[in-house]
Amino acid sequence: MRHLTQDELVLFYYREKGGLDRQQAEEHLQACDLCRRELAGLTGSLEAIASLPIPERDENYGREVWARLRPHLADKIERRWNFILPLRTWALAGSVAVLLVAAFWGGRVWEHRQTPIAASIPAPARERILMVALGDHLERAQMLLVEVMHQDAGSQVDVSQTRQLAEDLVQSNRLYRQTTLRNGDAGMANVLDELERVLLHIAHSPNEISADDLKSLQHQIASQGILFKVRVVELEAQEKQKSAGPHLPGTAL
């Protein structure tokens, strides 16, 4: 038999099959000094690595881990339920916000022609309403993006809940984008435009996507720095909300 290759010696050492005839290899090793020395060298290296000390953890370690983990777990569960279960609530909140923004924009467009309810609200207050609604929208969008970024890439990934939420957000996002653009805030509108593309990508996905599709989506979000941009725009919205004046008496916002 020819000499064993390095790879075959590794297979032999680990007792992996991988095309190696173990019996033949054993017979060859008994007869061949060179291969025996090679195997001894490999064994020595691998056993030296196995002997590397590892900091010990005593039998209470599991309890310590649980004690550290539990508060985060509760938070995680709560956040997850907040994120997934109240989709209807969110959709409702989103719809209300969209209606408010629509009323805001309607007020701006038609205030000289007629007098809708929104037009009777002073401009700074309307600005504030818009920014509050936009802030809420961006917060929901961020939670969705964070959820996608932290999704584990198994063979198939269930994104049905995320997809539903993305569908809801796409509609409102479009209105906010158009409104901010008409208000002359091109920077904010650009970020909303980028966000909309990602939301559309998610909304048009099937309920289950492959690990590769998930990675591609995560790459799209990461490479364009969308999460960061959305955070910045949210901060801008908060600033504008503050500068638009105090809370209107008698309004929920």
Binding site: R57, Y61, G62, E64, V65, W66, L69
Partner: peptide, 8 residues
């Protein structure tokens, strides 16, 4: 139980 069993 799973955490305590597998942590180490």
């Amino acid at each position: 139980v799973l955490v305590e069993r597998h942590s180490r």
